[in-house]
Amino acid sequence: MALTITCPICGKRNGYEFRYGGEDKGPRPEEAGLTPEAWCDYVHMNKCVAGVQKEWWFHKDGCGSWFTIHRDTTTNLEVKGPEADK
């Protein structure tokens, strides 16, 4: 609840205005030759990093855009990318 998020369009706003969209896992995989396991991993498995992760947020009470931020999961603070993006 103490989290603030910087929306690329609206700027730094209260975390309440956003909805979490999960870790950044990259674009949808090609369907050809996709195994059930690989698909399940893409949809459901997470890295659950203790530290800085890149993640998606939706500005639901604002401009309605999806964007990524870098957040330190141990302090629950937004941190500057992309140097944090190891």
Partner: peptide, 12 residues
Amino acid sequence: TVEWFRYHTRYD
């Protein structure tokens, strides 16, 4: 619905 459309096209 808008959120859903935008989420599933966010990389494109």
